[in-house]
Design a protein around this nucleic acid. Structure first.
Length: 587
DNA sequence: GCCGTTTTCGGCCCGACTGTTTTCAGTCG
């Protein structure tokens, strides 16, 4: 079973407990939900962790759930789960995916109308709603009926939070909304928060915080956004809309005096906030978006900045990218948070495809080397690495490939002499073939300073074979960087599997670096592997993999992802001076 | 069911909004 499937199973157990007796099982429900969240977020496969006996390493998994998961791995089922799940009809569970339906409503609907088939329950409910039968049910009315019908329709279309946006897309969408909001005289400040501020690679909805003295006017103005499809909800302090593009936007307001608390609250993550509130409780305090309440006096103190808010809890301000409750709070209490890498720290980009005509195995860039260099200078870099794909091996003889690379080297040498204000590294992106050999032979390395290696074909290989293939490719002394190490592409493919324990130890022992590819579709390494790499002392390079000058602006996405992986300046080779990098390349 | 710089027992985050109700349950983040 995949992590997603296991997480869903645990959520079904939680839902079943809710339906049976929410009060009695409250803490079990919360525990199962926490465990599900934890499993869903983990990129280690639960099946692997179970085999290795490492399930305890995931927060929220204790002795009991660990035992259940081991039983699941061994026998394919869990007696305890089966017993709990058998208390409610199976057709309840698909309905939980429909927005606005939770365990209680789903159960009422399923039992009231005797909906038994989990495969058709959503359509069946829609036709019952169309017949006007839901409105007659106790605690349901006309409005609930039409809401359910619409929710099913939107769910079917993937509107709202059911499909996640790439952060690059969400970033632009939020920018448009912020521009609109700032035109209102009643809105003093407006910031995108939530997972967008925490820089997750994909974002479910857009969260915006607004500082205002007249919340009602600000909310009315927001609800009149010209590109809205409908208002989802609208109250005195917050509102939600669905845009014409089918994306959900949530807005929350606070007065300027309390804006810091709102920023903190609405940035999340949920787990980070829950943990902070548990700490606050022990200090006799209670946290909310309004501020910090003293439990004795019931007085709420407001905070204009996040720094003051965190300081009141006796901890350092925590960078949003770290707020996932994975150890950052404990470090902030000890005032030992790492200083994360920043865009300004970058002195180079190593993964650049120019239009130099070497008849490559994959796509060529669109701009000349000179144009790429000019752009690099504009970005404030002091050097740049060219790394076009290797010449295609099916279209050329070995001799032809030598000649192409020799000529390219001459071009680069000429550029090095004629270009005074920026330095150049002569790299190449080389395919690792199916058998683990590189797509160029040893003689080619005379014409190169070093190479980036990567996988571009035959992605379906089992984990052990793929790991051998990659490590074999990396074992050449001049192969220094592994590009887009997992090969994942959002909304396209999950990537191939690698044994990262082996990859990390190989890189550490042989002085190799792993790439953080900045393309929003890739963000590869994924951030949790970045964090493991950093913990293992592996050096990273953050690259744009540019095929045009405009792509060189994508660096910020790589930086964001690296920050989510807790990478510091010292972990990233792009922050080295030219001479230091060349020294590393030749080590 | 999980967890530990008050604890291996006794705690466990907080508030907004909606619809269906006459004071609240359900859902969401």
């Amino acid at each position: 079973m995949t992590n997603t499937q296991i997480a869903e199973l645990l959520r079904q157990v939680a839902a079943s407990y809710s339906i049976q007796d929410e009060r009695k099982y409250y803490f079990q429900i919360v525990a199962y939900q926490k465990a599900a969240d934890s499993i869903e977020k983990s990129t280690s496969q639960i099946s692997d962790l179970t085999k290795e006996g490492k399930l305890n390493e995931l927060s929220g998994i204790g002795a009991s759930i660990k035992g259940h998961l081991e039983e699941l791995a061994k026998t394919g089922r869990v007696k305890h789960f089966d017993e709990i799940l058998s208390k409610v009809p199976k057709s309840v569970f698909p309905l939980l995916k429909v927005p606005s339906l939770g365990p209680k409503k789903a159960y009422k609907l399923v039992t009231a109308f005797n909906l038994k088939d989990p495969n058709t329950v959503i359509e069946d409910l829609a036709s019952i709603a169309k017949d006007g039968k839901i409105a007659t049910l106790e605690n349901f009315g006309e409005k609930s009926q039409s809401d359910i019908l619409r929710a099913i329709g939107e769910y079917g279309k993937g509107a709202g939070k059911t499909t996640r946006m790439l952060i690059s897309f969400a970033d632009e969408l939020a920018e448009k909304l912020i521009t609109y909001l700032k035109k209102s005289p009643d809105i003093k400040q407006a910031f995108p928060l939530g997972s967008l501020r925490r820089k997750l690679p994909t974002v479910g909805d857009i969260d915006i915080a607004v500082a205002t003295a007249s919340p009602q006017k600000a909310i009315d103005y927001f609800a009149n956004y010209p590109y809205k499809d409908r208002i989802i909800e609208k109250g005195i302090a917050s509102a939600s809309i669905l845009t014409t593009g089918g994306h959900q936007v949530d807005l929350m307001t606070q007065p300027v005096k309390g804006f810091g608390s709102l920023l903190q609250h609405f940035t999340g993550s949920k787990h980070h906030n829950v943990h902070l509130r548990e700490i606050a409780l022990k200090m006799g305090l209670s946290l909310s978006e309004k501020g910090i309440k003293d439990k004795k006096t019931e007085k709420v103190k407001m905070y204009e900045t996040e720094e003051e808010f965190y300081s009141a809890l006796k901890m350092q301000w925590i960078p949003p990218e770290m707020r996932e409750d994975t150890g950052e709070i404990e470090l902030a209490q000890k005032k030992m948070l790492p200083k994360l890498i920043e865009l300004q720290d970058m002195k180079a980009d190593f993964h650049i495809h120019s239009d130099y005509p070497l008849d490559p195995s994959h796509d060529l860039g669109h701009n000349t080397m000179e144009e790429m260099l000019k752009k690099a200078k504009e970005l404030g870099y002091s050097y740049l690495g060219f790394s076009e794909h290797n010449p295609s091996i099916s279209n050329h003889t070995k001799g032809q490939i030598y000649a192409i690379l020799k000529k390219r080297k001459e071009k680069i040498e000429h550029l090095k002499e004629s270009t005074k204000n920026i330095r150049i590294v002569n790299l190449l992106e080389v395919d690792i073939l199916t058998n683990g050999e590189l797509a160029i032979d040893d003689k080619c390395f005379e014409y190169l300073d070093g190479v980036i290696v990567s996988i571009h074909s035959v992605l379906k290989m089992d984990k052990d074979q793929m790991t051998k293939r990659v490590l074999n490719g990396l074992s050449h002394p001049k192969a220094k960087i592994l590009a887009h190490p997992t090969g994942r592409l959002f909304n396209e493919r999950p990537g191939y599997e690698l044994d990262f324990d082996k990859v990390f130890s190989f890189c550490r022992e042989n002085n190799k670096a792993l790439e953080v590819n900045s393309w929003p579709e890739r963000t590869d390494l994924p951030y949790d592997l970045i964090r493991q790499a950093v913990d293992n002392g592996i050096k990273l390079v953050i690259d744009t993999d540019s095929h045009a000058t405009t792509h060189m602006d994508l660096m910020k996405y790589g930086i964001w992802n690296a920050r989510r992986g807790w990478a510091k300046k010292s972990d990233v080779l792009n922050t080295l001076e030219y001479n230091e990098f060349i020294h590393w390349l030749n080590k």
